[in-house]
Nucleic acid binder design. Sequence first.
DNA 1: ACCTGAACACCGTTCAAGT
DNA 2: ACCTGAACACCGTTCAAGT
Lengths: 202, 202
Amino acid sequence: MARPSQPLISVDALVTAALELIDESGDFSLPRLARRIGVSQSSIYNHVSGREEILELVRGRITRSMPLPPPAATWDEVLRYEIRAYRDSFARHPRAAPLLVMQTVRDADVIAFYERLSSALEEAGFGGAEVASALAVIDSFAIGAALDLAAPGNVWAVDPGSGTALARAVDDASRLADRAGTAFEFGLEILLDGLRNRAARI
Amino acid sequence: MARPSQPLISVDALVTAALELIDESGDFSLPRLARRIGVSQSSIYNHVSGREEILELVRGRITRSMPLPPPAATWDEVLRYEIRAYRDSFARHPRAAPLLVMQTVRDADVIAFYERLSSALEEAGFGGAEVASALAVIDSFAIGAALDLAAPGNVWAVDPGSGTALARAVDDASRLADRAGTAFEFGLEILLDGLRNRAARI
DNA sequence: ACCTGAACACCGTTCAAGT
DNA sequence: ACCTGAACACCGTTCAAGT
């Protein structure tokens, strides 16, 4: 074929196809991506530096259009709002979360999200290193909540009728309509409560 | 060669070699594993069902010999002790953490760890579904802390001198002797504080 | 029972050749 | 500038053939 007068690939189409593959199968590969767009594998490299950049663009797509907190919100309301919005974004594409863990965040919108968290934490009175610590905790929680959504049906290979505390917990939780959502809201309030307590002691 | 009178491979040696490869390079593959033991790639399947089982055995090896909390400890002391022991185990092999996320926990010792957490949470007065929620939060935090140890030098691609709250936090944290450890202890106390507050309201 | 080598169906990335 | 096909150096798993 050689060069067409109109490009066959756009970065946007690439990201859309990658996200579709991730939603369907939990992963994507360049051969399958190329097949879906109807193009040769190697031509992808004319638009993107490789797999890692595609993943980073997927991160951007997922978190795009996160709503901003209302301007009058207090620092803890800002945190609740932002963390929930972040988690909601990943709830729409849970299987993307595991792929994005351990990759440096480059997407400007996601950086802006962490910047808003940092500002709220400074407003709470936390000093620089504490802001970083709090950020790490929030990040763990947010990533964990996203991973939780993509988790295998049973996180633990535990015997249902074994009468242990873990079996009881797993069993009771399985009867909830939205197990992961319930756990997220429970954890969010605990986290905010702990942060408020700590801020009050500064 | 065919079958030797003494087996060339033991599961223990397999796990040791896999963990060495992970510590050195952040990952392992069956070809490299076989090369390290001096054996053919396919013979590994005589001892183990595949890559996933090896990873689960690595999880067991890492968390083996986690110390038990003192018998007289209160429920929150138990949680602090256990979560710290879990995190310390992964601190010795940080690069293993990303590989174990999203894989069902089958190792009996790790199941026992979560059982001890569940018991402590029941003792605190939490009901079944709440125990599961608290467990999910603790799990997120513990996994996040382990991932944090393996994280790339910069989690966020942020401009150092940009004067933003995020840049300040990253900068201040980079001056700490043990950034990840500081964040872990900060988060652990916040988490326990939040759980205590919640338990008191039951 | 336990090893080997060959085979299979995958990966991500590079590069010369085309227009 | 943008596409193609071939090539390279990897993966995990299976299986017939050996002793």
